[in-house]
Design a protein around this nucleic acid. Structure first.
Lengths: 156, 156
DNA sequence: TATTGTTATACTCTATAACTATA
DNA sequence: TATAGTTATAGAGTATAACAATA
């Protein structure tokens, strides 16, 4: 990872550009910037629906796994159960999610989408599908997207 | 992005695995998980040196661009100048960075690495080189790394 | 004893407004 | 007027400890 220090930044007219190659060539740095960029777009698109990335994931996950405990949903997403409480509470207050006391385990809450929650998610997923389409276009097609996902997988 | 709901999660023995495909196939989600994973490794390796990713970037950037203003370094990294103050102050207190009052512009500080800062950075970069090597190995070689960086670039 | 949901709390990161001294 | 650095502050996101109810 040695940088070439033999050629200093060539002074141009007024302001001189910075040497950023040593920083921007790092995998972690580039991953962070790309992730921030994608999330920025998500936030812009979902500002109207007042939905954050984590909330979207939770809704999708509950829709695909109705009746699961809070702990189970939280763990899959890497969210601490203590922090998950606030997140689910917000979704419940908006009438999107129901916390049904579990019959088998009186300690647990079974999570379900309400009818409104399902309708909301359908809308959200339609918007997100558009966003993913744009992302795929940015990447250069479905094959490029698949390639990216495969590479990202190896980093986990 | 329609999910297939015809085949419900097959019930196994005790606990049943969750359906996570709809969530985990999203580019943003996978980017975030991969980025977190890479940063976790960084934090583990650099815990001993008490150096955070942003601080590492700042040191590298100052080393390659000595004498630049705080605003310039901060902007390249996407850090607000207000938050950059605390970051640089920490590095200065550790004796790694010097804030030299600029001669041309009395408002500005020119940033430099101290001798200790340079020695420290050399060490840090050696460790980071190892970390990048491991990352490249994870990805499957330098070609795979180049491919990943190219794909990430298209998302910005 | 262990687990579920919860509260309280703290720490990092990030964002904005407002001030000062210079330009 | 605008900019550089700074302070104060507020909001997310994340982490841990401890508790009550239940297993």
């Amino acid at each position: 990872m040695r940088r070439n220090k033999t050629n200093p930044p060539a002074p141009t007219e007024g302001d001189t550009a910075l040497r950023t190659d040593a920083t921007t060539s790092l995998v972690g740095y580039r991953l962070r910037r790309a992730q921030l960029s994608v999330f920025q777009k998500f936030l812009a698109v979902f500002d109207e629906l007042k939905l954050r990335p984590a909330e979207f994931s939770v809704l999708v996950l509950i829709d695909d796994n109705p009746g699961r405990k809070q702990t189970e949903i939280a763990e899959v997403l890497g969210i601490k159960r203590a922090n998950f409480v606030t997140l689910v509470h917000g979704l419940e207050e908006r009438g999107l999610v129901e916390r049904v006391p579990s019959l088998e385990d009186k300690r647990a809450n079974a999570l379900h989408l309400t009818a409104e929650g399902k309708a909301f998610l359908t809308q959200a997923q339609a918007r997100h599908a558009q966003l993913e389409e744009e992302t795929v276009a940015q990447l250069g097609g479905p094959a490029a997207r698949a390639q990216l996902l495969a590479l990202l997988d190896r980093l986990i």
